[in-house]
């Protein structure tokens, strides 16, 4: 069957240079096309530059949303950023799909820093891997009880609940 609608979204990070991490997110879909580029200062994860472009959209006035992006400058990637980005770029007075691309970028920053530790953990096996996951949770306590793998009953969190 021929598809009625298609969305293709891509986000990537590149190797940091001069303590600056560049993240790009783009969405190409039947009805909308946009791109956002965010530069994040390390190690405090502060948004220092944000650029965007809407290439296709249903309304001419959708273009106005791009001018809202600089309001996200100065934000730090961490707790509370989802609500802040929705309020500054999305919501009833903004463009939710553009805000969503900003949040794809902030998510990708977190995943960028998660990839290497996970790669090291997955090199281990059995009990050694469980111990490595427990150490990973000590360093990232927000992940505790964030998904089925890190529930209080999971073998990966054994002994962690009491510590946190």
């Amino acid at each position: 069957m021929i598809l009625n609608y298609v969305r293709n979204k891509h986000v990537y990070t590149t190797e940091p240079k001069n303590n600056l991490l560049l993240v790009c997110a783009a969405s190409e879909e039947t009805f909308f096309s946009a791109r956002v580029e965010v530069t994040v200062k390390l190690p405090d994860l502060e948004v220092v530059e944000i650029l965007g472009k809407i290439k296709r959209s249903p309304f001419t006035r959708c273009q106005e949303a791009v001018s809202m992006l600089p309001q996200a400058m100065g934000l730090r990637i961490g707790p509370g950023i989802i609500k802040l980005v929705h309020n500054l770029v999305g919501g009833t007075k903004g463009c939710p799909p553009l805000a969503n691309l900003v949040l794809e970028c902030t998510d990708a920053v977190i995943l960028h820093f998660t990839t290497e530790p996970l790669k090291e953990i997955l090199k281990k096996e059995g009990e050694e891997q469980i111990v490595a996951y427990q150490e990973f949770l000590r360093q990232n306590p927000r992940l505790f009880n964030s998904c089925v793998a890190f529930t209080p009953d999971s073998p990966l969190t054994k002994g962690i609940k009491e510590e946190l």
Binding site: M1, L3, K9, T115
Partner: peptide
């Protein structure tokens, strides 16, 4: 060099 990449693809059919 690229360090992390995520691609999400969604396709919708309308059989009825």
């Amino acid at each position: 060099m690229l360090k992390f990449s995520r691609t999400k693809w969604v396709g919708i059919e309308r059989p009825a």
